[in-house]
Design a protein around this nucleic acid. Sequence first.
DNA 1: CCTAGACCCTGTACGC
DNA 2: TGCGTACAGGGTCTAG
Length: 271
Amino acid sequence: MPELPEVEVILQELKLFLIGQKISYIEIRCTNLRWPISQEIYKLKNQLIINITRRSKYLVIKLFKNGYILIHLGMSGNFRFIEKKEILFFNKHDHIDFVFNNKILRYNDPRRFGFFLWFNSLKNNKFLNKLGPEPFSKAFNYQYLFKKSRFIKKSIKPWLMENKVIAGIGNIYANEILFESKIFPDRKVMSLTEQECLLLVYSIKKILLQAIKSGGTTIRNFIRTNGKIGFFNTKLKVYNKKGKQCSYCFSYIKTMKHNKRTTFFCSFCQK
DNA sequence: CCTAGACCCTGTACGC
DNA sequence: TGCGTACAGGGTCTAG
């Protein structure tokens, strides 16, 4: 579900409430998420949250004196704030409650691909270590992308989705970005010119920023902490548009597969 | 190193 | 209406 823009939207909403709050206690109703939740999570009782950040599609909660919580929402994870009087009204797949003084942050995840892990330190963290640059960082520029793309024989679309190359891009935005930059998804990475890398970097920043400003994309499971949905799906040009007319020409959106994931494209606009 | 495939889950949409 | 199948925004791990 959530790619960089969705996680960023969630982050901004969590930040508003969580920073400076103390976790009264944690209630776990299901421990078998993507990685089992260990007993260490109970160390978070009475801990003060001093910061929350995002890296790629991960959320990182920094505690005052007791390490970090690394969170990933998988395909279908979502948070919502509820009032204390609602604590006994559960939805299906409500797995975890973070209980605060006057509110509860509830985690729901039908497919259970999300995870919560506690780390004393994030140095050499196995998840964060291998990530490439953030799309909005200075390190992410066309020189980086061009250099990185040399001698790679695979197709561009699945390459854009590799977090070790660029952090945070998933299936929806990989498709949208390639349409925006008019690059055919099945082109080989090594065939990219410097000019095209420049265009790609520009398109990545543009599409992701627009999506964040729209509150993310809701196809099915993405729900904001206030229960509302994102509306970038109204701006999607190719994702989920198979058979629909291209927004720029008169041909129709087609699909192909890369590593079992659907790729959407316009064969006339994208070369 | 690289790539393809299996796997972790539930919900839904669709064809018969 | 029911059943079987394919597919869905994630990533990790393995075998070759």
